[in-house]
């Protein structure tokens, strides 16, 4: 059975179509990612799936239940971590989880056990009696993840789970998310605008832009279609062109470009290609002054599937932001 099914899901805010006839399926036990720039419609999609907004068109089923007809039953079976913190900062971590458990109708005895086990899981048990206002950003995030799991949801929704966190904390959160699936078998739906996050965590990724899904596949396939990594090589040698054509003839580089003494090579796997590049350069007597490589970023993937760079699409999210601001008035 599919955990989530969306069919032609559409949401409009005035003239802006925030989510435009989006269809996808999330399998049970899968970690599924919605990847896209700010304002692409990720959060709006989540808010329809978690029954906080009604779709203007289309239909969705979460845990086999229709979002239009069974919102209350869906809410019982899902856990949600919002993009912005939604904890009570005056209360302690334990109290926040207690309130959540009671509201979700978890029996008091098992609730106590569940709170302890989840607070230990996210390494916050020692901080259980500290008011949340004294928590760091990463701790609040962990607390919210624990809270979303209190009532043993079948599906966990995470909206930008590592936004604004430092790299170590992000890696820690990723570990937790993987552990959750292992421990509880929870299906996880997450949104992100970080390629590395999607690549590390997700079984499958949907790339969303302007409210539409432009690609849906495993991260490996999405990146493979880009042709792998880009190697940047600086040299003052005049035999750069020769080096490049040699590398592309051997099939190591699928494409190359030279701009101002800088050679850009598209290779499948930079870590394996670089020793061979050194070897070839040594043979030709090309002295390399600097070399680096880049994994494709969301920017590259996005460019590939939309034909536009992220920068070009910024206008659209500013427009969205303006509309949101206007709606708040």
């Amino acid at each position: 059975m599919d955990a989530i099914v969306a069919e032609n899901l559409t949401k409009r805010f005035g003239e802006l179509v925030a989510v435009d006839h989006v269809s996808f399926k999330v399998k049970q036990g899968e970690i599924f990612g919605f990847l896209g720039p700010n304002g692409a419609g990720k959060t709006t999609t989540i808010s329809m799936l978690i029954t906080l907004r009604k779709p203007d068109e289309g239909e969705a089923w979460v845990a086999g239940l229709s979002v239009a007809k069974k919102p209350a039953e869906i809410r019982r079976r899902i856990g949600v971590v919002f993009q912005d913190p939604s904890v009570d900062r005056e209360l302690t971590g334990w109290e926040n989880l207690w309130i959540h458990g009671v509201i979700y109708g978890v029996p008091k005895n098992s609730l106590r056990r569940r709170i302890r086990s989840l607070m230990e899981f996210v390494d916050l048990w020692e901080k259980k009696d500290t008011p949340v206002k004294h928590y760091s950003g990463g701790m609040v995030r962990r607390l919210e993840i624990a809270r979303a799991l209190i009532h043993e949801p079948e599906i966990l929704f995470l909206d930008e789970p590592t936004l604004g966190l430092d790299p170590q904390t992000r890696a820690k959160i990723w570990d937790y998310i993987e552990d959750i699936r292992r421990r509880e078998g929870t299906t996880i739906f997450l949104t992100t605008h970080y390629m590395d996050e999607a690549e590390r965590l997700c079984d499958r990724v949907a790339i969303i832009d302007h409210g539409r899904i432009v690609a849906l596949d495993t991260p490996e396939n999405l990146i493979r279609r880009l042709g792998g990594d880009v190697v940047y090589l600086h040299s003052s040698s005049d035999r750069l062109e020769e080096l490049a054509s040699m590398l592309s003839e051997t099939g190591l580089a699928s494409d190359y470009k030279i701009i101002d003494g800088k050679l850009m090579l598209s290779v499948r796997d930079a870590s394996k290609a670089m020793p061979e590049i050194f070897e070839a350069a040594r043979k030709l007597g090309v002295k390399i002054s600097e070399i680096s490589y880049k994994r494709p970023s969301l920017g590259d993937v996005f460019l590939h599937y939309t034909g536009r760079s992220l920068r070009d699409s910024e206008g659209s999210w500013k427009e969205t932001a303006r509309i949101v601001v206007r709606r708040r008035r």
Partner: peptide, 13 residues
């Protein structure tokens, strides 16, 4: 503003 309302809004209660 600080989000606790969302926690209530998405609750089944």
């Amino acid at each position: 503003e600080f989000g606790f309302l969302k926690e209530l809004l998405v609750a089944p209660a």
